[in-house]
Amino acid sequence: MNLLEFRNVRAAYDRIDVLFGIDLEVPAGSVVALLGPNGAGKTTTLRVAAGLHPVLSGDVLVAGRRVNGTAPEELARRGICLIPEGRGIFPNLSVRENLRMMTYAGVTLSAVEAEAYERFPRLKERRRQLAGTMSGGEQQMLAMARGLATSPALLLLDELSMGLAPIIVEELYSIVAQVAREGVSILVVEQFASTVLGVADLAAVLVHGRIARVGTPAELQDDLSKAYLGG
């Protein structure tokens, strides 16, 4: 069963088409990597899935139910969690207040905190600190903690590695792998493919708003250079 499914989805910014009818499936419990060069439409795909961007035509299905036009807050309550590009935290709120924002999804603050601090103990030390004053890696941890604290069914990760040191990226992706083992479906967008292919079950290459190829990471290795370099 597919937890998330795109059927011939088109999306645009005003008159400029960005997604030209893409088909994409995220099977339950799997990690799907969405790869592609700058401007391919990867972030738009995630925004469409999270309800932040309207669909021009086609269908977006979550657990088999059509969710076109559903408000992002409603999708969040149904267990879809997007961690947007560039951290996805509230910089002027403390760590604890950031976590408290997750209680809108129907969980208690104590549960959110327990989950977050267990996975990322460093956040507990910094719970009174303003999130915007933490390091990039810690901010990304907070973003992930916030996302995972409600035990989402589907996690949408956008450019997790952006602006982070390789060692921190490695650490974060080990957590992604652990989360996937716990049964959470994940659609992850990355420009830098090598790290994400290590944890993905399936990968899709998006070029110029079209899915150019779908397959296992091993099958796709060769196609990637063509997609990025136009070869």
């Binding site: 999270a50 932040l52 992002p72 935290i89 509230f90 207040e97 924002m101 129907g106």
Partner: peptide
């Protein structure tokens, strides 16, 4: 603004209204 959830959500909306919606708050 510091103790009540809707007050914290008010401050969160200033930082990032879209992210606020992604958390399930209604901006």
């Amino acid at each position: 603004l510091t103790r009540f959830r809707f007050g914290i959500a008010m401050r969160a909306a200033v930082d990032d209204p879209s992210l606020s919606a992604l958390n399930g708050a209604r901006p």
